[in-house]
């Protein structure tokens, strides 16, 4: 894990979440600022699981916030067949967003996932976000060739997983990591 050039702490997000609620913000799982963070072009990793089954990990390449407290996760179909099949069988979903230059991380938990076909806007968005991640990796010191390979996306093999956001947790390393982000 490379050095964060602008380190973040769990307390910053916990305080901000409470302040948002105190100022009369909506009762959704994510504040507008956290929604923007998730879509800002950073690391997106995913896990799915069903009761009594083994979890499955995956690397995603972006997300889009949908209306009604739902999120669209965008990831390659190839290599994630088992993960997608589990979503279709009603698996719980966890997604962690991490920004390499700050180590700022949040995890969302969700349910009622469905596998969907992305539209053109999703494909443009996934390319934009993956370029953001590429810049982050270079900034923290990965070789450019590695960052480009890691973030190379074929938009035509992207698939969407739409799910309902149930909760969010701060996951930035440090005291307070793991606490729920709620009002």
């Amino acid at each position: 894990m490379p050095r964060a050039s602008r380190p973040h702490t769990p307390a910053i997000d916990l305080v901000a979440r409470r302040a948002y609620a105190a100022e009369g913000g909506t009762s959704g799982v994510l504040t507008p600022e956290l929604e923007a963070f998730c879509q800002s072009g950073i690391s997106v990793i995913v896990a799915v699981c069903r009761p009594a089954e083994a979890p499955v990990a995956g690397l995603a390449c972006g997300c889009v916030i949908l209306p009604a407290g739902r999120m669209r996760l965008l990831l390659p179909r190839a290599g994630n067949e088992e993960l997608l099949a589990m979503v279709e069988r009603g698996a719980g979903i966890a997604v962690t967003f991490s920004q390499p230059v700050t180590h700022r991380s949040i995890q969302v938990k969700g349910s009622r996932g469905v596998v969907a076909a992305p539209d053109e806007e999703d494909r443009r968005e996934v390319l934009r976000q993956s370029q953001g991640m590429r810049r982050e990796l270079i900034e923290v010191g990965y070789p450019t060739a590695f960052a480009e390979a890691y973030c190379m996306i074929d938009p035509d093999i992207i698939v969407a997983v739409d799910f309902t956001l149930d909760a969010a947790f701060v996951q930035t390393p440090g005291p307070g990591a793991g606490a729920e982000l709620k009002s």
Partner: peptide
């Protein structure tokens, strides 16, 4: 080698997943 962080997925007894980077 710990150069690129790995991704770890786990789940609790009820099947709720959790995902994080591991160094």
């Amino acid at each position: 080698e710990g150069i690129v962080p790995s991704v770890i997925a786990t789940a609790d007894a009820g099947g709720t997943p959790n995902v994080s980077l591991i160094s």
